[in-house]
Design a protein around this nucleic acid. Structure first.
Length: 519
RNA sequence: GGCGCCGUAGCCAAGUGGCUAAGGCAGCGGAUUGCAAAUCCGCCAUCGAGGGUUCGACUCCCCCCGGCGCCUCCA
């Protein structure tokens, strides 16, 4: 089944065909590094990291680029406020961004080019546009002339005259057309500046992405991603200036992810909107806003103090990437609960086989994945069906939500298999069935790995506990085992109940008692 | 004012012009267990309201109601 992707430009799903067969150039608009990242900044990276994993799995060689915008009005203002330099502020916030990506298991990015390191490339594009008469200098600024681009507005489906009907765009006498946008901006004294044929200045907002994406991925990108909010004006302008410069199609597939929502009344979180004023926000919205890191700027790191990164990543992928995500503590707690069953299964597998799920070899490419066994046919027939449903879902515009649904069904099928054959108690006597279990678990690892979840082991059952605590628990459970052997139920139950109050769960199994911290 | 999105069970969330509308969380009943935990089995929706197209729509069209985004250098 071919991969199909929804292209914002055509507003429909299209069969995915790359410029160079077998290769994918993918560009994602990265952050302006002027403040700590909030969770909304992680949405795009997580989604496109997942897309890269899946395309790689499907046999493509993918080059994935995310830019770092380290020169910008917001940076200049913020640096002045904090009494530091743009360079220092950018370096600090870039590191924060990288830290967060790492925590979120976004590790497939090949290159993070910096805007300030690509001024010559930008000037070259601007020069071409000026020479071609598609851009014009004006008092040290350079503007792109939107009337020279017949297709302007195609991506965001607007036309210039309609846009002018709204009162939002303020007329600027100096520009030829109100919708013209800056390619180059003259610098005021004290601001970062680079020499150019039009005088000292700095790049406009959109030109960096054209310069860096085309430098590293060629003049036609396969995939260009970003948040829906960037569709206009950023991507529209990027598209206009790039195609006007090269005369070639700039991007084959425009993919836009939905934005993080911060509660029903809060509007978008993380942006500068403040239509309602804080006083009008209800408590839930404020909480959500705080979570997502809007004004007041709770960072991603604060979020991770309360929720595992794996839970957050899973939560983000449980909804289709184009849909908005309602971020809430309740939602994350529910996501965490739904993951618990997988952890229990991994523990069960460990008991039965003596092997760690996390040590199973996860094929990064489908072509190199081990085939599923034929025996027992019922079990593996079902797994094949579920695996195919998973892959079909991913092929269909990276439908991670539907794919995740099949993971739960795979989990249930495996639990059934374990229970049906009594592998927990009698696994040792049935090596063939245990081998079958391992094959099934390997498939599960392969498929979950594509989403970037269950990649690394959680801290063990004694999470956060020292060796002393572990020994103490062993002692308690040993004594309790003697009580149970003597059928002293009141006392053994008391021990279990009191441990439960301490958030320690004891599971009495045929093979002995196991304990873990309650989630 | 312009462009656009969404409204599926208590909650989250896939999905299709026509077999039984995925899955998760919560809940209920059962198996298992000394009792629990974990696991398994079963139950739990007619798809915001109305109209239209069609042999047939939750899925297509129109309108209404409700929620939301962009048009403001926010990912």
């Amino acid at each position: 089944m071919p991969i199909r992707v929804y292209n914002t430009l055509s507003r429909q799903k299209e069969e995915f065909q790359t410029v160079v067969p077998g290769h994918v150039g993918m560009y994602l608009c990265g952050p302006t590094v002027y403040k700590p990242a909030h969770i909304g900044h992680m949405v795009g990276p997580v989604i496109f990291d997942t897309i890269k994993r899946y395309l790689t799995y499907s046999g493509f060689q993918v080059k994935f680029v995310i830019n770092i915008t380290d020169v910008d009005d917001k940076l200049i203002v913020r640096a002045q406020e904090r009494g530091t330099t743009v360079e220092k502020l950018a370096a600090e916030m870039t590191q924060d961004y990288f830290d967060n990506l790492k925590i979120m298991s976004v590790d497939s990015v090949d290159l993070f080019p910096y805007a300030t390191a690509h001024i010559p490339e930008m000037l070259a594009i601007i020069g071409k546009l000026v020479d071609a008469g598609q851009a014009y200098p004006l008092d040290g600024d350079v503007y792109f002339d939107v009337t020279k681009d017949a297709d302007y507005g195609a991506l965001s489906h607007r036309n210039i005259s309609e846009m002018l009907a709204g009162a939002r765009i303020e007329a600027n006498d100096r520009k030829r057309h109100p919708a013209d946008f800056a390619l180059w901006k003259r610098s005021k004294p004290g601001e970062p500046a680079w020499d150019s044929p039009w005088g000292a200045g700095r790049p406009g907002w959109h030109i960096e992405c054209s310069a860096m994406s085309m430098k590293y991925l060629g003049e036609t990108l396969d995939i260009h991603g970003g948040g829906l909010d960037l569709m206009f004006p950023h991507h529209e302008n990027e598209l206009a200036q790039s195609e006007s410069c090269t005369g070639k199609k700039f991007t084959r597939y425009w993919l836009h992810n939905g934005l993080m929502q911060g509660g029903k009344a809060a509007g978008k979180v993380g942006g500068g909107h403040d239509r309602h004023g804080d006083a009008l926000l209800d408590k839930e919205s404020q909480e959500a806003g705080k979570l997502a890191g809007s004004k007041g700027a709770a960072s991603v790191k604060e979020l991770f103090a309360r929720h595992r990164p794996e839970t957050v990543r899973f939560f983000l992928l449980a909804t289709h990437y184009r849909s908005p995500i309602e971020f809430s503590d309740e939602g994350l707690i529910e996501a965490a609960k739904s993951l618990e069953g997988f952890y229990r299964l991994f523990e069960s597998y460990q008991r039965v086989s003596g092997h760690s799920f996390y040590q199973l070899p996860a094929a990064a490419r489908r072509a190199t994945a081990p085939p599923l066994p034929d025996e027992p046919p019922g079990f593996f027939g079902e797994l094949r069906l579920l695996r195919d449903r998973y892959l079909d879902a991913m092929d269909d515009d990276f439908n991670t939500g539907a794919a995740i649904g099949t993971l739960f069904e795979i989990r249930r099928a495996i639990n059934n298999f374990i229970q049906e054959h009594n592998l927990e108690a009698a696994g040792a006597a049935q090596p063939r069935l245990v081998a079958g279990l391992t094959a099934a678990m390997t498939l599960l690892r392969e498929l979950t790995g594509l989403l970037g979840v269950f990649v690394n082991p959680l801290p063990g059952p004694a999470a956060g506990d020292d060796q002393f605590t572990g020994e103490l628990m062993n002692l308690v459970l040993e004594l309790r085992a003697e009580l149970r052997a003597a059928k002293n139920w009141p006392l053994s139950d008391k021990i279990r109940d009191r441990l439960a109050r301490l958030k320690v769960v004891v599971e009495d199994r045929p093979s002995g008692a196991a304990w873990r911290r309650d989630a």
